[in-house]
């Protein structure tokens, strides 16, 4: 069972954003949509979410045709580059939002909501910040809240649009590993968009390299580095430090991240 997009085309006016894009994402994997700015990777993500509609093509979730399904019926979690936290609600309220707005019939009771939210708060290590408002948090903290908020509604797929793009380099690196760890605990199918090669190769199980609306190559990080499908891919990944990536990936499973503050 997986997420499939087949032969998707999208034009904005005269600009061709996506040209016959087909991708298949196995369940439970993290995949990265990697490419230069303006290549269409965010458009792919938004089409999967339902925030954009393709001109033609099919989107299937676990075999079912979701092309015409409304956003809220797709049960996707979306994390934005600029967090999109609700600034008038504190951390708790933000994370609880998706549960609280459910229609009365399927809404869990307040006690259950509280339990779920606090569990997620612990998961993202923000226990002491539960009453803070987004304006009182650092960038990294805000993105963790956004993640918790997206996970609160138990999405079938998690979509992240350049999630660490607004953060400084050090925080980016830390959160990247943190995300990988999180995914190991909660293996929801995840797709993230980035233009940072290191990020894509370190975090993901598969990489989709996109350029000018076309898919250039799909494969594991090792595959795309060792056997680039064409000159573009080779050039795009040319200054990636393969060895260090392999080391980091191995080391990830041996190191337990004890940092509880400061990201």
């Amino acid at each position: 069972m997986n997420i499939e997009i087949a032969n998707v085309n999208k034009k904005f006016g005269n600009f061709v954003a996506l040209d016959d894009v087909s991708i298949s994402i196995p369940k439970g994997e993290i995949i990265a949509l990697l490419g230069p700015s303006g290549c269409g990777k965010t458009t792919i993500l938004r089409i999967i979410a339902g925030l954009e509609t393709p001109d033609s093509g099919v989107i299937k979730f676990f075999g079912e045709d979701f092309s015409n399904k409304k956003i809220k019926d797709r049960k996707v979690g979306f994390v934005f580059q600029h967090y999109a936290l609700f600034r008038h609600m504190n951390v708790f309220e933000n994370i609880a939002f998706g549960l609280r707005i459910r229609p009365r019939k399927i809404r869990p009771d307040e006690k259950t909501i509280r339990e779920n939210v606090m569990r997620l708060v612990s998961l993202v290590q923000l226990d002491n910040f539960v009453n803070r408002f987004p304006s009182e948090l650092s960038g990294g903290q805000r993105q963790r809240v956004a993640l918790a908020r997206a996970l609160a509604v138990e999405p079938t797929v998690l979509l992240l649009d350049e999630p660490f793009g607004a953060l400084d380099a050090k925080v980016r690196k830390e959160l990247r590993l943190w995300l990988r760890r999180l995914h190991d605990e909660i293996p929801v199918t995840s797709i993230f968009v980035t233009h940072d090669q290191d990020e894509a190769l370190e975090v993901s199980d598969s990489v989709v390299i996109v350029n000018k609306g076309k898919v250039e190559q799909i494969g594991s990080p090792e595959e795309v580095c060792d056997s680039p499908a064409n000159p573009f891919v080779a050039d795009f990944l040319s200054d990636v430090d393969e060895l260090s990536i392999k080391k980091k990936k191995k080391g990830l499973f041996n190191v337990i991240n004890d940092k509880r503050q400061g990201i």
């Binding site: 925030l51 809220k72 996707v76 979306f78 600029h82 998706g98 707005i101 908020r149």
Partner: peptide, 13 residues
């Protein structure tokens, strides 16, 4: 429109 889109994905009407 980020905030509104976020709310959409979380299932809000």
């Amino acid at each position: 429109k980020d905030d509104e889109e976020a709310a959409l994905t979380l299932g809000a009407s």
